[in-house]
Design a binder for these strands. Structure first.
Lengths: 149, 149
DNA sequence: CTTTTATATATCGCGCACGATATATTCGTT
DNA sequence: AACGAATATATCGTGCGCGATATATAAAAG
């Protein structure tokens, strides 16, 4: 059974919409937990990277999070003004800015490590975790295929 | 094999990040096609609803797109100023605003009905369509489970 | 050594998202 | 009829995302 051209324009037949809505929904699920840390969701993503590797350039962050300097620079400046990260021009190459965690930023990992569990238990009661993990893997595969486009 | 608390904070182990990144990526894939219609991606979503049902209140749009009036009102005003939709206070209930398509808005469906195919062919060469559809269904199931939270 | 070219970050403007709140209208109760 | 609660939309402020562009430094070419 084929689907007509106009049928394909129905909201429920789109891939884009559930992706968009689910992304916003999940961000909202994180919000109360991130409020305790006084950070936003994109700021949390930055921290996830820096907790793994302690220091990074702006572009390197951008590659991992698929964000460009026009988003990252203001974001990182807000985090700097909160005392979470430091931004220092590299001595070796004055074009680069080294982003690293302050002590406060490092400390926050201890609080944050409860977040994944809190969410998993909140969500896992209503939607099986294995299906979440399967979606995650499929989305990562999708990203890998199209990230350079 | 269990995953430690800090392991769970790795970017690649998150569900939230690929969702967030894929949503932005797909929006970017739509962009050049939507540019031809001179609309943004959220504006396209509004049109998807109105092409299905011709008229709607703001709240009804909000339920379908999971957006509130603080996002929709400015969005709809921008679409009104472009001549795509009309916004009229309901006579029966002066609180309500009836959103409907202008002739221009209706015409745009004919151009838009090529968009799903264009994307499917662009994406389908690199990522099997059945896996996209499976993700779509899973995301919709996820949304249904959590949309009221 | 100078001129081009590339690289890294920053700036600007606009359109979302969304929490908090305001305004206007209708409904329900007394 | 009067008034408090509920409903529908709008307003405001902040923080993203991102296209376009600017600035500054470094590398490459001549």
């Amino acid at each position: 059974m084929t689907v007509g051209q106009y049928e394909q324009l129905k909201l429920e037949n789109q891939f884009c919409f559930p992706l968009y809505a689910a992304s916003r929904l999940v961000t909202r699920m994180y919000q109360p937990l991130l409020d305790d840390l006084d950070i936003t969701y994109p700021q949390y993503l930055i921290l996830l990277v820096l907790w793994e590797q302690e220091e990074s350039g702006v572009m390197e962050l951008g590659e991992k999070l698929m964000l460009a300097s026009n988003t990252l620079t203001p974001l990182l400046k807000r985090m700097e003004s909160k005392g979470i990260v430091s931004r220092v021009r590299s001595g070796a190459d004055e074009r680069k800015v080294r982003i690293s965690l302050t002590d406060k930023g490092k400390e926050m990992e201890k609080l944050a490590c409860q977040i994944p569990e809190a969410l998993a238990s909140k969500a896992g009661n209503r939607f099986p975790l294995d299906r979440i993990l399967k979606m995650r893997d499929e989305l990562n595969a999708f990203l890998n295929e199209f990230k350079d486009t």
